[in-house]
Design a protein around this nucleic acid. Sequence first.
DNA 1: AAATACCCCTGACGGC
DNA 2: TGCCGTCAGGGGTATT
Length: 297
Amino acid sequence: MPELPEVETVRRGLEPAMVGARFTKVIQRRPDLRFPFPERFAERLEGQEITALGRRAKYLLADLASGEVLVMHLGMSGRFLVTKEGATRMPGEFHHEHGSLGAHDHVVFRISNGATVTYNDARRFGFMDLVPRSTLETSKHFAAMGIEPLGNELSGETIARLFQGRRTPLKAALLDQRLIAGLGNIYVCEALFRTGLHPEAPAGSLATKDGQPTDRAYQLAAVIRDVLAEAVEAGGSTLRDHAQVDGSLGYFQHSFRVYDREGEPCVTPDCTSTVTRLVQSGRSTFYCPECQKRSSS
DNA sequence: AAATACCCCTGACGGC
DNA sequence: TGCCGTCAGGGGTATT
């Protein structure tokens, strides 16, 4: 469940259960997820206070008193569940009665405040790593990472500069984490629809040949902010599992205008067209062929 | 540099 | 009921 809004939703849920408390016990139930866990993973966490819980793009970052950062990525199916001592676990297919472990519960963090934080990931495309805070920015995960879409760097000017001269389709450019980091398939489709831009239009068409932003570049920057902020506000999107760490659901999926709506009528008033699906670099793109045009203004 | 193809893994769903 | 193909919010690597 992992684009930026879902990861931010998880961060907000984990924060009160983790920050200011210590790991009292870490149970690592297999040697790897997508990648091997770092050496002595559990030992390096146990006893450590979590001083802050942050997020960069789709990564969760738990700062430890040791000076290391616990880096966590949810992949496609990673999820966290927080349970409090004495409380009954939310019912769910992967979680049974309190204290028992479900089929894909790979890591269990016991926290000094009585909370238990369980990481479940059926597909195991997620991963965890430990990196010194002092070199986090230059570590392999972040060295080539693009700008934060909810930060100050995202603007029409930035989009024009990043996309300048690129003939790659807009869809691919927006999914490229080396340019803007945090968007995924859902929010790219939604942002392109809201901006009226065709997913196959060349990314460079948002900049003039001088590198100056077109009106559409400014609109796209604003729309990306808006759609992400709305989704965070809604607690993310719930597709096949809970989005929140207490087992409750996000509800932004009810606000999708094109994502996963192939064949449904376009929501634009007076538009008689139909949401269409196409495949770009192996992934589904949903768009309205009437409302989303290749021309840039 | 940039674009595509394929890979990782499990589960859900539709068609037969 | 089962089997099979397809698809899924991620991204890394190898190949053109």
